[in-house]
Computed example of a mutant assay.
Amino acid sequence: MTNAPPLSPMAQAFAKGPGWFPQQMDAATDRVLLVRMTEESYREASFLDQRMLSQQSQPQWADWAELETADQTSRSDADFIFHIGHVGSTLISRLLGELDGVFALREPQILRNFADLATDRNAPHAIWSPVQFDQRLETVIRWLSRGFTPQDRAQIKASSFVSEIAAPIIGDQRKALLLSVSPKRYLATILAGENSRQELAMLAPTRLKRLHQRLGGEDWNLWELDEPVRAAMSWLCEILALEDARKIAPDDHILWVDFDAFLAEPSEQLTDIARFFGYPHDADTIAGLTSGPLMTRYSKAPDHDYSPDLREKLLAEAHGTHQDGIDKALTWLNDTASRYPKVAEALANHSGT
């Protein structure tokens, strides 16, 4: 019998914990990109994607099979934040990350890799079989569940389009916070900013593909949808993904929060979220967080000011500029709801204000 080759120093270092982070994978070559991380670098990072890469992070590729062999951690108890995009998920992740024992990770790119593969999960040309896809997703969740101490509990804030795989990630064991806003507020939010509009243009093709798959038809051509309707389509795509996750998860494993409701009562809402996940907290800590600097900074780029009042001003300006387009997009949503019961249900659940 041939002995297995010894593990590389990198694989051995990876097995020790989150000091080496599995930032992304290359499914075609079966490799994982590892980057060097400290507790402080995790705390500071708004995105664990390509924007974090630098010489200091010492990126190195490693074989998937070797990492899987090296790391035998049994933890897979990470908590999750799923959302539809631009609904305060980074802010809430940062607030929760200040609580004792909460190890916050924001937008790991490796989960995006799985979301991209999921659209072809059952196709003949898929790289992995459906069984292997599920097994490898569980492996990644184990990797992301590791903390620097046994008391750490990983809190993973996914990218918006990772909602496509929210259902298998949550399953019947993990807990997840689901964040949304009403269609009207979402449309104004997207149309209010240049960056969000660019992101809308980039993600619209994939979101329409996902929406068609979820509804079982091909009702729309992307080139016929103008920008506000594309935003409405994006809201619908991500809401339906989260609704599907909600329907299969145990009721006590899902907490749905409207971001506008959160901003109206941040202390009460943050207390409810911490209690839902079982995170240690007290009234003074919660009050300090929700009256502190995190609430007045742009969470994705903390060097910039961004308060609830400024948000309301920008949304009001967007309504003034884009009201006709917003009205057209809401009509598109209502027309779609008249043909698809699951869309009507989602609109009823998230009509908001």
Rank of each mutant, 00 (worst) to 15 (best):
L333I: 13
P130F: 02
G147N: 05
W128A: 12
L95F: 03
D30S: 07
D244W: 01
D100H: 01
E199P: 05
W332V: 10
L99K: 03
R75D: 11
F262E: 00
A318E: 02
G88W: 02
S234G: 10
M202Y: 09
T38W: 13
Q23D: 00
D251A: 15
H304L: 15
L211Q: 09
S129E: 01
L105S: 10
T119Y: 09
P108F: 08
N221R: 15
Y279F: 15
Q23R: 03
A316D: 15
V162W: 00
E312I: 07
G88R: 02
R185G: 00
Q213Y: 00
H253F: 05
Y279I: 11
L111C: 08
R31L: 14
Q72S: 13
W61I: 12
D79T: 06
R106N: 12
D303W: 15
Q155Y: 09
M233F: 09
L200T: 03
E199F: 13
P183S: 07
A78G: 05
R246W: 11
P302A: 00
F103W: 03
A201M: 03
A204K: 08
Q55T: 05
A154F: 02
R210A: 08
S182E: 05
I273R: 05
Q151S: 14
L208W: 06
A241L: 13
A348M: 08
T139Y: 02
P124D: 12
I81M: 00
A241K: 13
K175I: 08
A204E: 09
S41R: 08
S180W: 11
F277G: 03
S338G: 08
R136S: 03
R94F: 07
V131C: 08
W256L: 04
A346I: 13
